[in-house]
């Protein structure tokens, strides 16, 4: 079991934002869907650092990203 970031897409889509995507250290891990105007996490690539949570919650006060537990194979 390990922690990964999860974007609440309905919440995120309210903002025309993309900031977390621009600050994640991992390549193609936090991505952006133009169609739904939302960020999304490629779970396999996420290392659980929470920098995106710092950006979304601490800096922007938007609280759209939550850390969740996943199991291998999820």
């Amino acid at each position: 079991m390990y922690f990964v970031a999860h974007v609440h897409e309905n919440e995120c889509a309210k903002y025309n934002c993309k900031q977390c995507v621009l600050f994640c250290p991992e390549p193609n891990c936090l991505n952006y869907k133009e169609s739904g105007h939302t960020a999304w996490v490629w779970t396999d690539r996420c290392k659980g650092c929470e920098i995106c949570v710092y950006v979304c919650s601490d800096l922007l006060k938007r609280n759209c990203i939550e850390m969740v537990m996943v199991k291998a194979g999820d």
């Binding site: 250290p25 390549p27 936090l30 690539r45």
Partner: peptide
């Protein structure tokens, strides 16, 4: 760079530590 997250990046998954900002700079 503002298009990040919407194209396939040149750098792939790698073993640098979680939250490493050297890894971020390289990205």
């Amino acid at each position: 760079v503002m298009q990040l997250g919407q194209f396939k990046e040149l750098v792939e998954e790698h073993p640098m530590c979680a939250g490493c900002y050297m890894a971020y700079f390289i990205r």
